[in-house]
Amino acid sequence: MGADLRIAGLHVGYGRIGVVTDVDLHVDPGEMVALIGSNGAGKSTLLKAVAGLLKPSAGTIALGERDITGMPPEKIVRQGLALVPEGRMLFGPLTVDENLAIGAHTRPARDEGVASDRARVQALFPVLAERHTQPAETLSGGEQQMLAVGRALMCRPQVLVLDEPSLGLAPRVIAAIFEVLDTLRAEGMSILLVEQDARLALKHADRGYVMRSGEIALEGPAHELANDEQVRHAYLGGRPETRE
């Protein structure tokens, strides 16, 4: 089940240059939270700090009861936070099945739940069962994104963090992936979603944060943000939001 992720007073930077300044953000158990903002607003830097790829210069990150600030990435995965990285970062020459197996790397070799989790991932993304012996690099972009999400699920995360999952994909594939994210959230998983496509993100999320120049500029329930004059103008192309 999902745990909560709490970020407080976080500062992250490269060398002396601060990229993320004084960010407070939280994801409650079973909640999907969208983090939106333009290119260079600091979204990816924030995620890197959450996943342990960058060390914050100040502030705290807590996962459930545990403080994970400054932990190395492999320990953070063990605490129950999985990242679907931007650009997917699949193991290209390895097969689909091997990619999923490596996703379960942090679990004991004889963990019998791994097989059932793989079956579960294959049920969510049937194409991963069809192509299970194919090298990951031979999959289409959409299939690769599905594999990246599936691989992250193999460590049984309590919090799933996705960096730009819709980037470069066809609308039909995006719909399929977000349908799975909705399912996971409905089952109680906590999800933090970073998206450039603000409209898409706010349509699926419960709450949202808008990041600008390394700071949180706005936050609130997703539907309120989607209708916010400022957000609409800056991130939704200025057109009035129509909700289906």
Partner: peptide, 23 residues
């Protein structure tokens, strides 16, 4: 497992890190 982790590391170090491999 270490051999598989090595192949993962060679394919992409960031991907290996994201899977919790102590690269």
């Amino acid at each position: 497992r270490p051999g598989r982790a090595m192949r993962a590391l060679q394919a992409t170090e960031n991907g290996a890190l994201a899977c919790g491999i102590d690269t």
